[in-house]
């Protein structure tokens, strides 16, 4: 019993810092992204951005995403970092509305762009958002997320 208790505590610690591909993660169902078309991904992004909720589309982030938030961050970040960076960005401003106004769904580098309206310190502002996808391991992933 005591051994199991120590083992349990140890195991918990293993999982505390086991990030991707942890034993528990392996048991979770993996979203079948291949079946989501490009359009579906853009819909998820649109929904997520308009509500300021990154987890809505964070599953589609590629292993390296080019993030450019005007006046703030510009560079390549991992999927985890991208999630955190975008989460922090949306926390600071309160999105009011967002719709993709232009799409380029064909080709090997589909993209969509639209206007995000938000409220910051009581004032209504807007920025342009550009999202593009790329194929990675035969799956569409978000490779670029720019805010101008």
């Amino acid at each position: 019993m005591k051994i199991l208790l120590i083992a349990g505590i140890t195991f918990l610690h293993v999982e505390l810092l086991s990030q991707a591909n942890s034993f528990l993660d392996r048991k979770k169902p993996v979203p079948i992204v291949q079946e989501q078309g490009v359009k579906k991904i853009f819909e998820s992004v649109e929904k997520g951005v308009s509500s300021g909720s990154v987890p809505s589309f964070s599953g589609y982030l590629g292993p390296q995403v080019h993030v450019n938030i005007a006046g703030q961050n510009d560079g390549y970040f991992s999927a985890n970092q991208t999630r955190a960076v975008l989460q922090n960005y949306f926390l600071a401003l309160k999105p009011v509305s967002f719709i993709f106004s232009r799409f380029q769904e064909k080709g090997e580098n589909p993209y969509a762009t639209g206007r995000l309206v938000y409220v910051l310190k009581g004032n209504r502002e807007s920025v342009q958002v550009y999202v593009s996808l790329a194929l990675h391991d035969s799956k569409w992933v978000i490779s670029q997320f720019n805010v101008y």
């Binding site: 140890t10 195991f11 610690h13 293993v14 999982e15 505390l16 810092l17 086991s18 990030q19 991707a20 591909n21 942890s22 034993f23 560079g75 390549y76 970040f77 991992s78 985890n80 970092q81």
Partner: peptide, 19 residues
């Protein structure tokens, strides 16, 4: 050994999830 795996994964994030 699972702990070692977790340790290696943690180091992986220190490298891959950082700039």
């Amino acid at each position: 050994l699972w702990s070692v795996r977790g340790f290696a994964e943690a180091f992986r994030t220190f490298v891959f999830d950082s700039t």
